[in-house]
């Protein structure tokens, strides 16, 4: 069963001049696969990741996630879909500064509303524990270091047990020890829970240990 399928995905940038970033890409990602997306900067890998995450709807071609077509769906549908099925880790953590680490992790789950609030708190705390930052749970996120913030962001991506976890250089801000921890977590998620991981990375070591590498150049897969 495929977790994600892209059919003829193309995308253009119009500023400052019309430019094709993605050139009719076709690929399939299986469920439980750990995929590393590599390429030089400007190759279009981050752009592709945003298209796959449904946060960018301005593209041509068709995208299926969990064998469901998401291309052409409404903003509200996509928001709910992301909430339930996709966990996203940005390059720069992107946490809400006014909230504590624990609250940040809880927010997507509160939105989903599958569990009671007290149960959610336990689950969020659990996720922070996996990433070894449970001591920081009650702190405002702007009081945390860059690496700590990044780990909170990863915990947030995991909270709803999404089918697919996407990361735009999720370990870019982490030292090698923490990178290793995150990698182990990802590996375990794919193997034990059949969750799919798609991570853009520059880190060759990280990429080598992935199940599959897709390398991009000039908007094409090579």
């Amino acid at each position: 069963m495929s977790a994600l399928e892209a059919v003829g995905i193309s995308k253009y940038f119009y500023e400052p001049v019309k430019f094709q970033v993605l050139k009719s890409l076709d690929f399939k990602i299986e469920k439980g696969e750990f995929l590393a997306l590599m390429g030089k900067s400007g190759s279009g890998k981050s752009t592709l990741l945003y298209v796959l995450s449904t946060m960018d709807t301005d593209y041509q071609g068709t995208l299926y996630i969990n064998e469901e077509q998401v291309t052409g769906k409404s903003q509200n549908f996509l928001a709910h879909f992301r909430n339930e099925h996709i966990g996203f880790v940005f390059q720069f953590h992107y946490l809400l500064q006014e909230f504590t680490a624990l609250q940040n992790v809880m927010l997507p789950a509160l939105k989903l509303g599958k569990y009671a609030k007290s149960e959610l708190e336990d689950r969020a705390y659990e996720k922070l524990k996996i990433l070894d930052i449970q001591e920081q749970a009650g702190k405002k996120t702007n009081k945390l270091s860059g690496g700590q913030q990044q780990r909170v962001a990863i915990a947030r991506a995991l909270i709803n047990d999404p089918a697919i976890i996407m990361g735009d250089e999720p370990t870019g801000n982490l030292d090698s020890a923490n990178t290793s921890i995150v990698f182990e977590i990802f590996k375990e998620l794919t193997e034990k829970h059949q969750q799919t991981i798609i991570a853009v990375t520059h880190d060759d070591e990280f990429a080598k240990r992935a199940d599959r590498i897709i390398e991009m150049k000039d908007g094409m897969i090579i």
Binding site: N76, A79, F81, R82, F88, Y94, L96, K111
Partner: peptide, 16 residues
Amino acid sequence: MKDIAILKAMGFAGRD
């Protein structure tokens, strides 16, 4: 604005 983007990325709908 950035907070809005983060909320939407996490799955908050336009009306939220």
